[in-house]
Design a protein around this nucleic acid. Structure first.
Lengths: 162, 162
DNA sequence: CTTGGAAAGTCAACAAGGCTGACGTAAAAT
DNA sequence: ATTTTACGTCAGCCTTGTTGACTTTCCAAG
C-alpha cells in the first residue's frame, strides 16, 4: 500500500491496460519482421525460404536429430517438412543417415556447406539481436526472455528448454 | 553508468554471448507461434487468414486510414492487400469510402460486424499477452518492449510510434 | 486547358509453404 | 503373425506473397 493508486497494492497495474497490451502486440508484429529480414535477404541468394532456414537452424542445434523430432519442434506436417528437407539433401547441405539402433529413423546432419549456410544466416540474425541486446542492456534482455517464454505454448516451452 | 554498455564498468557481458543470442532467437520463434495461435483458431471459423487479421487490426487502430498507408505498415504489395481487402469489403466487415479532399484515396473503416470480429481476435490475443505480462511483471515488460523496439527496422519503428 | 503522374483497382500468372488424404515400405513392438 | 511406428512420396488444394501490364480517376503543374 505504498502508493494510493486504486486497485493497486503498491505495484501499479497500468502495464496491464488494453492500450499497453496493444502496444506489446504491435511490437511483436513489427519486431518479428525485423527479426527475419536479414536472413530472408540472404536466403534469396540461394532461392531458399524461411522454412529452409528453420530446418537448418534446428539441425545445427541438435545434430543427428530425427525427422519426427524436427516435426514436433517446427509444428508442420511431414509432407511440408519433407519438401524442404528433400531440396536441402539434394543440394548437399543436409545429410540423412539411417539410424543404427532403430533403422526406421533418419538422423539429420549438416554437411560442410550446410553448416556454412547456417553460419551466414545465424550470424546475420545474431548481429541484429546483439545490437538490440547491447542497446537495451542486460536487465531488459532478462525481461524480454521472460515475457517471450510466458507467451509460448507449454509444448513449445519444453522444446525451448530441450 | 551501470547500463551494460561495454567498458562502462565491471558489468558482465555474458548476455551477449552467441549462446544467449541463440536462446533469444529461438524464444522469438517459439513465442511468435504462441502469439498467433489463438487468433489463428478463431480465423478458421471465418475461413480467414492472418492477412485478414492484420488488415482488420490496423484499420481498427487508425479508422479512415488510406490503402497506401496500410500498405506501408503491412509491407506487402497492393495486389496482395487488395485481395484481402476485397473479401473483407464483400463480406461487409470493412467499408471503403472515397476521399473527400482527394477522391483518389479510399478511406477504410470497420463496419459493426468488422469491429465485432476485430474485438474477438484482439481479445483472444490480449488474453495471452495479459497472462504473460502478469506472470513476468512490469519490469520484465519494460525490457520486453525495449528489446523488441530495438529489433525493429527504423521504418517500422516510425509506424510503431505513429 | 492540357498533360504528367500519383493513387487505386484489376487481371493474369507464378511460387513458397502450409494443409489433407492415400499409399508404400521397412522395421520395431506386441 | 499382426499391428504400430517412422519415413517417404504422389496428388491436389489453399493462403498469401510476388511481378508485370493495363485502366480509370483525378490532382496539380505547366
Amino acid at each position: 500500500m505504498a502508493d494510493g493508486r486504486p486497485g493497486s497494492d503498491g505495484e501499479s497495474l497500468l502495464f496491464l491496460t488494453d492500450e499497453q497490451l496493444r502496444k506489446g502486440i504491435e511490437a511483436m508484429f513489427f519486431a518479428y519482421r525485423g527479426f527475419t529480414a536479414d536472413p530472408d535477404r540472404l536466403l534469396e541468394e540461394y532461392s531458399y525460404g524461411r522454412a529452409h532456414h528453420r530446418a537448418v537452424h534446428f539441425i545445427q542445434r541438435s545434430p543427428g536429430t530425427t525427422v519426427n523430432n524436427l516435426l514436433s519442434i517446427l509444428g508442420v506436417t511431414k509432407q511440408s517438412l519433407n519438401r524442404v528437407l528433400r531440396t536441402l539433401i539434394a543440394d548437399g547441405l543436409v545429410e540423412s543417415r539411417v539410424g543404427k539402433r532403430d533403422k526406421r529413423e533418419r538422423h539429420l546432419y549438416l554437411t560442410e556447406s550446410g553448416a556454412a549456410l547456417e553460419r551466414r544466416l545465424s550470424e546475420a540474425q545474431r548481429r541484429r539481436m546483439r545490437a538490440a541486446y547491447r542497446a537495451a542492456g542486460p536487465e531488459a534482455v532478462r525481461g524480454f526472455r521472460l515475457v517471450l517464454e510466458e507467451i509460448m505454448d507449454a509444448e513449445m516451452r519444453a522444446h525451448f528448454h530441450g
